[in-house]
């Protein structure tokens, strides 16, 4: 029994759920930043941070479900762009001037539809998901510029701007939506048979097939879910800006995948929790802000991307170390 000393139990806890480890890292970061400049924990700054993280968390919830089935979706960034452009064209008084609720429904439906196309090509067309979504990434990028015709849209209606900038009960709408999405995804993955099936497909696809799980439909649904959430993320993030241009969403696919992976979701599928992903997203969005608050001079902000990269490498190395600790115990489970 002496093997299960306090420290090894702590290691086991961290190994089981990445969320604890990242939570520690976040606490450390917050403590250091607050020590240097106390205004880091000011409500306004915390609010900004959460608003910034909200769309990424929403999309990460979709992408993590896809990655749990051992597939990948890197089309989310471009899909965000094309949906934002469509949203702009639908609602702007100078273009189609649709009512906001109708346009919102259309965007979520369109997102789900685009995700479903990805899903059909992966599950029924048997094309590897990285290729399908890479192709869609490129195609959507062209589609965005096609819709915007090289220009941009500035006249977003007030009702739409409210979705992005408004708040209910002093909680920003985007943060509220993100909370709902996180809660629902957590419930979906841990409390429903669909969630069990997602993990089963990701752990061992052949076994899942033999166990009677409709693998193809599960995959189709995960891609549809991911596309739907991109639509939701667009609704709460695009109206924050006063201008929608073709650059919207560029590079988000890698940011989202980064958050999912740092959050402890195995790229080979079957392992990972929503809590870890949420923590990782908070950490990742914090980094650039923290650099400003640490008062290292303006040149420090240029290093933020580098630090993000080092965090990913750090998470990977930590995992490696934890796994080797476990092997020392002689426990074979993951």
């Amino acid at each position: 029994m002496d093997r299960f000393s306090k420290s090894s139990r702590w290691i086991a806890l961290m190994g089981r759920n990445r969320a604890y480890g990242i939570f520690g890292l976040i606490t450390l970061t917050v403590m250091v930043a607050t020590a240097v400049s106390p205004s880091f924990l000011a409500p306004a700054n915390v609010n900004d941070l959460l608003v910034q993280a909200a769309p990424i968390v929403i999309m990460a919830c979709g992408v993590m479900v896809v990655i749990l089935t051992a597939e990948i979706d890197i089309s989310v960034g471009s899909m965000m762009g094309i949906l934002a452009a469509t949203l702009g064209v639908l609602t702007s008084p100078r273009h189609l001037d649709w009512p906001v609720p109708l346009a919102a429904l259309a965007i979520m439906g369109l997102g789900a539809g685009m995700g479903a196309v990805n899903g059909v090509l992966v599950a029924f067309g048997k094309v590897p998901s990285i290729i399908v979504t890479l192709g869609m990434l490129t195609a959507f990028k062209g589609g965005t510029e096609f819709i915007l015709e090289g220009g941009w849209i500035t006249d977003l209606p007030e009702g739409l701007r409210f979705l992005g900038t408004g708040s209910i009960l002093s909680i920003p709408i985007s943060v509220g939506v993100a909370l709902v999405v996180v809660g629902f995804t957590g419930w979906l993955l841990s409390r429903t048979s669909f969630g069990r099936r997602v993990y089963a497909v990701g752990s061992n696809q052949t076994a899942a097939l033999y166990a009677g799980i409709p693998v193809r439909w599960v995959k189709l649904l995960t891609f549809t879910w991911s596309g739907f959430l991109v639509g939701v993320a667009v609704l709460v993030s695009a109206p924050q800006l006063s201008v929608i241009d073709s650059g919207f969403g560029t590079g988000y696919e890698l940011l989202v995948v980064t958050c999912v992976v740092v959050g402890g979701v195995a790229i080979s599928g079957g392992v990972g929790t929503v809590a870890g992903v949420v923590m990782a997203t908070l950490l990742m969005t914090m980094i650039s802000t923290v650099l400003i608050f640490l008062k290292l001079g303006e040149n420090a902000t240029y290093w933020s991307r580098s630090i993000q990269g080092c965090f990913i490498l750090g998470a990977v190395l930590l995992d490696h170390w934890l796994r080797s600790q476990k092997r020392g115990w002689g426990r074979g489970e993951s």
Binding site: L254, V257, T258, V261, Y302, W303, S304, R305, S306, I307, Q308, G309, C310, I312, L313, V316
Partner: peptide
Amino acid sequence: LATMAAFRGA
């Protein structure tokens, strides 16, 4: 993915 960000950031 990690080194992409790390190298570009550096």
